[in-house]
Amino acid sequence: MPEATVPFKIFRYKQGQNAGHYDTFDVPIDEDTTVLVALQTIRRDQDSTLMLRHSCHHASCGTCAMLVNGREELPCVVNVLDLRSSPVVVEPLRNIPLVSDLVVDMTDFYARVNPADRPYVRHSEFLPWAQTPDGIDSYSRFENCIECGACVSACPISGTDPDYYGPAALAAAWRVVEEPRGRQPQQALNWVDNEKGCWRCHVAFECTEVCPSGVDPGGKIMALRGELSKQKLRGLFGFGRR
């Protein structure tokens, strides 16, 4: 049962056009409708050419990240009525090249994350109330970062300096330091130890603020700086290595 009709004001752009524009669609909404489902409804019933990325529908794949009312969100977990806004404004991520409509090109994003060589799985946390299980040394689980690009979109430095590695790539580098799983932590540290890397960040944590997956990229950048500073101090006092 639709409970309301909510207007969606959506950024539109097709390749070859000079500029983007906004289209508005009225969408029937019930109490469970997410922004993602509303966008799919538009695509199904009103305009099949509306382009968006989506896959898992539960905040685990990271593909659907976009701006909802100007803020980086995963529309699959944003309830429309909770927004209490009319219209709901939907736009593609910032600081990532636009393909069309709400779709951005993640090539550059992955090219930046890749050099960290972060493994995809890590130790799973033990539940705080659990005993360490016998017979299993350690459970593993997928990394928190879902490569959604929200942090890059929100980062003012990524917006002004195209050479900056950006928060997601730096967080991936810290992951390698934290839990190498056969990778080379020193390589990751050397990679970020420059003015395109962790020293470029201005520490305002816009990235951490919007990360939908609890990665805390800003905090991870600080951790990289801390580790590099420690190493430099040790070098200064002649203790070459740990």
Partner: peptide, 11 residues
């Protein structure tokens, strides 16, 4: 027609 794995697979 959409992004890869935007049908049943991703979900």
């Amino acid at each position: 027609r959409g992004e890869v794995t935007s049908g049943t697979t991703g979900r």
